[in-house]
Nucleic acid binder design. Structure first.
Lengths: 218, 218, 218, 218
DNA sequence: AATGAATGAGTTTTCATTCAT
DNA sequence: TATGAATGAAAACTCATTCAT
């Protein structure tokens, strides 16, 4: 029996195929709605290989999360650490960064949202997610404090509500694209063109909103 | 054989039990993650009764949606139609209304969010949801126009983005309660007390935010 | 509870509806392939009524047989008893008679054939069928003896093989109509026109054949 | 997952066990009257293995047909091609051949007859059967033409009616063995002895009949 | 006399995983 | 190391029948 892999390992080619396929299918059909056979077929590997490499379907899900979260955590720190720009522009940069990630990793964010809706009985997975969130939140908190210290942001900001607004609004817009199309009569616009338009509008909206709540005395 | 019910019918006691149970379990474990056996057990009815009354698991899901959506559509209109209050207070009222509904129908909103993440192959269900959303959006659009006409709201408001912000942010906060607790050191607060606190904070946050984006020239 | 009906009763309207519907559906889909719900729907009665009137699905099958067999046994005797025509013409008349019944009671004959293929565990039903067959065979035997006594038929005729040939060939032709159409390029001929043609050809074939085996010394 | 086999493959041992068992049980109890559990039990394999190997119960039925039809098609050609014997003796040989196959493959022929009675919605299966029949019919047609060319058979023979007579009569006799026993007072004769007797009589009967209709001017 | 509601036992099929090699 | 074969458990659903009225 192969040792069940935990954290920070390098996956071989087959394993990566499996993870990518799982991410895609889990995001589309949900965890229970996707069978390991489907994943094996998508990844063009033998069914038994999934149990063999990851131990179980559950463990595969963890691997997917771990793979993406560890793979994308670093950039945020660079933004916050950058001395050259003002706090509000760091916020703008943050918005650009998150919307980019969201639009580029649709599968994964869908999957993450999905899993958050479960009462996650899977404690390991929950811990991975919490840790990642906490780290991000701390970084943003520092950024806000910096703005407040410089007198550019107003006092009394609930950072976690603010971040929830950023993520929640973005997700909501993102996962309601078909509805947004219909409402605004954009059914016939090509997919990529539409996504560019939507991202632009979303960013503008978010930036306006964050400027308002961060800088105006209300 | 009972005719499979479609729309606006009154469900009998057993049927309601089933719907309520299904709503709860679907919201917790997802559609595929919940078996009809589980639902039958929760509702304390025979398994066969679910097929008997609703035809299939899929149809039961539709029934759940229909039951809640048709059951809660009306109140919004009253808010908008009310002559006694200003547009911005209607918005506040709307925020109170939505957060109330969200906190009181946790199961259903969780379920709805879940299902929206699927590429819903179930066209009937999608239509039910779209229709309900469109109706709400139209009401809000009128409200915004009213505020603009009265010179109280600024021009150029993307109503659908605004509503996405309301729903998205609320949902995000709502479904991240455990995280919010941890972050803010509220692990030991009793559940209901915490929910009241959270709702209060969320409402304040939303009202501030909406006032800012609706009324300030940015 | 109503007494379960046995033999020679008069069925009321609803009961007849059920029997006719059952005959049709059993003949098409087989006994196990047809559900009592299907029958109830076809007969436009309540499902429970079938158990109520006939006791069980099995008993309903018996009722179908009994209904048809008792309903059609008499005419054969008239043919054989007729003094006006020669034995060979009685045979011809018999062929006409059987092919008529076959083409007019397609459902029932299909059903009967079907049931004969089962190792009929249902002893009651088997007895009904055997009795009917035996009676027919005796009549024909007498007819053959008459022809032999008159020197018109040859000796040494195995009557049961002869009757099997009549029934078997007719059935085979009858239930292979689609194949016969294809083979003979008659796919586009209207159904009723085709049936008339087929019946005519089948009768001619059978009459020739029976004349040959009954009258020629070989 | 094994690719679902189509046509002309070699089945492994387990698969053959399943096919043989299915043939037996389907022939006895009909398709709907036989459960996959029964088949699995008879074949002494796991229930899931049937789906695993054949995909579905329906596909298993197809496999049974294909297995037998492809397995027995060849011999007929040898008979027809044989230069050493006259056309009428080829017909006799054909009768011997068919009755042999019928008595040796009782299960399969019962099953085939059964399935022909259904309005076969299964188009694949229908095609398999039609093709096999057509091929046989063409061979016989050639044989008849040969006899006619040599002046040994009369003109105007409807080959498909003739073949239906052969198959229909044989089947009828075959599947009414218990009745034949009773009628002729042979209830106590041992099964195999009776079958030999019956086959002998049937063959004689068929040969007489075919000689009559093929050679005599009527 | 007739039936809507209800159900336990049954159906076929799919599932994630294990085993032998 | 990798995999085709195999399987027990569970899935959703249908069945004929019964029961309370």
């Amino acid at each position: 029996m192969p040792e069940i892999k935990v954290f920070k390992v390098h996956y071989n080619e087959k394993q990566e195929q499996i993870i990518i396929s799982a991410e895609k299918l889990f995001s589309e059909g949900g965890f229970s709605g996707t069978s390991v056979r489907d994943i094996a077929q998508e990844a063009k590997v033998n069914v038994a290989m999934i149990s063999y490499y990851f131990g179980s379907k559950e463990k595969l899900l963890e691997a997917v999360f771990e793979y993406r979260i560890l793979g994308t955590a670093i950039q945020l720190e660079n933004i916050v650490a950058n001395d050259k720009i003002t706090p509000i522009h760091k916020i703008y940069s943050l918005i650009d960064h998150y919307t980019d990630k969201l639009f580029n990793n649709q599968c994964f964010y869908k999957l993450m949202l999905r899993e958050q809706l479960k009462q996650m009985e899977n404690a390991d997975l929950l811990e991975i997610i919490y840790k990642s969130k906490k780290k991000n939140l701390d970084l943003i908190s520092n950024l806000i404090s910096e703005g407040q210290a410089k007198g550019q942001f107003r006092k009394k900001i609930d950072v976690s509500l603010m971040m929830s607004t950023l993520f929640g609004a973005s997700n909501q817009v993102f996962f309601n694209q078909p509805f947004y199309r219909r409402i605004n009569g954009l059914e016939s616009m090509p997919e990529d063109e539409f996504q560019i338009l939507l991202k632009k509008r979303l960013r503008l909206h978010l930036k306006n909103m964050f400027k308002a709540i961060l800088t105006h005395e209300l």
